[in-house]
Amino acid sequence: MDVIINGERRAVPPRTTVAEVVRSLTRQPAGVAVALNDEVVPKAGWTTTEVGEDDRVDVLTAVQGG
């Protein structure tokens, strides 16, 4: 199953959760937010929210700016 993670198409196993996507990118989930198809997924829902075919998952964090 393909999903688009931070703008890159990647193959992931079926029933992959948002939490697993986050873990694949960073070991520091503090200060991270996730949007699934532009909608915020609250942290409490990461382990129960599964990503689907062609979903866009954006994993963001604070960086230097402003």
Partner: peptide, 15 residues
Amino acid sequence: VALRRVSPGAEGTVW
């Protein structure tokens, strides 16, 4: 701070 996509393997953050 700004909000941007996580870059894998980044060590230490402004946060």
